[in-house]
Design a protein around this nucleic acid. Structure first.
Lengths: 232, 232
DNA sequence: CAACAGAGGAGAGCACCGCTCTGTCGAGGC
DNA sequence: GCCTCGACAGAGCGGTGCTCTCCTCTGTTG
């Protein structure tokens, strides 16, 4: 990955980067369906067959773009959240949610690639699962900090909802509870789903004739979610 | 539409139906991306060019399938809700939500076509906006009945959220309120978005390593939504 | 009843796609 | 300094959406 030994590998990494860069631009401009390996090759002045030396198939190129999109979105949310005072949990929550929406609005095709219909066969490649969790993990961190600070009651809400979740993951996220009736994790997953459901509905046009002020409605929604999740 | 005057129109409607039927089957089997007009024509034993007498483009065929999917999903939800006692609002709410999820699980590709990334240019055709609202309208009806029965407080929740919504639509859905601080409509739109966000996350694999018992988690979620929306 | 118009279909063809195979060339490694 | 092997171009295969032209057959109308 980093600091390739021989010059061959270096120029190879360079060209791989150029291909993904052009592909990312095509994706942003026209959407995943219109992304053509041949068009990317044309823009780079090479034969289409040459691209296959770097990406075994179009789906592999798309997978790279998916990982990039997850990482870009995750980074945007993390940076916005990091800019808030540590003890203002609600501000951190709001910043993360707003940054997610802002990124989605700025990169609609990349967002659709990642949170729309799955394009390849059906199973997401292994490489995508870690970056896909970044925003969810960020929200969980805010929540876990709230529990530590005594601002969030882990026991609130319907009892036992956490038993529907993977306990190992809850542990990793710092949302595990001794109380078997806890619903802290379930509330986090709920907020996570609702956040992206709201953004997807706006971006994909489902609330087109319903919501007139999307930004204000979104702010109401994430405040509602913060309350629902237990942030005081 | 109904009862075509001449025989020509009748046989035309017949063949149009056969084309959409075959296309719908191909969609259900392989997804929207793999739906090929030529393959449909082959199965029907006609030249691909002949199909263009009935659908001006592949996107128009897809639009027809989109409308069909919206209607099928809406009908499923409405029938399930209609099977519940009128005065048990929570049972009606649960039945509508569960039927929506069940239909999505049974028709993943059709669901993805409709609630995934928008495939055509970007603007949804006019013909799709009415059927797209069926599930949302159904949820609103349960909520409006709750207000009429005094079981739902239209004034609860954050004040003024309804000002972000289209007042004409709120009126049509029976969610309009004299109180300018009402949030009844906003809560309905929120629940609507969260419902489909949860289903999409499950179906598109985002909760794959997170939720272990999807059915139980979904039940917890829609109960949470019912409470959040104001159903006692 | 006969003639006509127009709907419906077939086939070839265009430009594009993903992907494969083969042949060649030039630079990196010994 | 030679040789190997990675990188690339080009042709080609089967597929796509869509168009155009030609022809047939049928419902309608004078």
């Amino acid at each position: 990955m980093s600091a390739p030994a021989n010059a061959r590998a270096r120029v190879r990494a360079q060209l791989t980067g150029e291909i993904t860069e052009v592909a990312r631009r095509h994706l942003a401009a026209s959407g995943a369906a219109a992304l053509s390996l041949r068009a990317v090759a044309r823009e780079l002045g090479m034969a289409s067959s040459a691209v296959y030396r770097y990406f075994p198939s179009r789906d592999d190129l798309l997978t790279t773009l998916i990982v990039e999109a997850y990482d870009a979105l995750g980074r945007a949310a993390e940076e916005a959240e990091a800019g808030q005072p540590r003890d203002d949990l609600r501000a951190r929550w709001r910043a993360a949610c707003r940054a997610t929406r802002d990124w989605a609005l700025a990169h609609p095709h990349e967002y659709a690639l990642v949170y729309g219909s799955p394009v390849p066969g059906y199973a997401a490649p292994e490489a995508t699962i870690a970056p896909a969790a970044r925003v969810g993990a960020l929200l969980s961190r805010v929540l876990a900090d709230g529990v530590a600070a005594g601002q969030v009651d882990p026991g609130a809400g319907p009892a036992g909802a956490d038993t529907t979740l993977d306990p190992t993951l809850l542990d990793d996220l710092g949302l595990a509870s001794d109380d078997p009736a806890s619903s802290l994790g379930a509330r986090a997953v709920f907020a996570w789903s609702a956040l992206f459901g709201t953004i997807s509905f706006e971006l994909f046009g489902h609330t087109h004739n319903v919501v007139t002020d999307h930004a204000a409605f979104f702010d109401h929604t994430i405040d509602r979610l913060a309350t629902e999740v237990g942030l005081t």
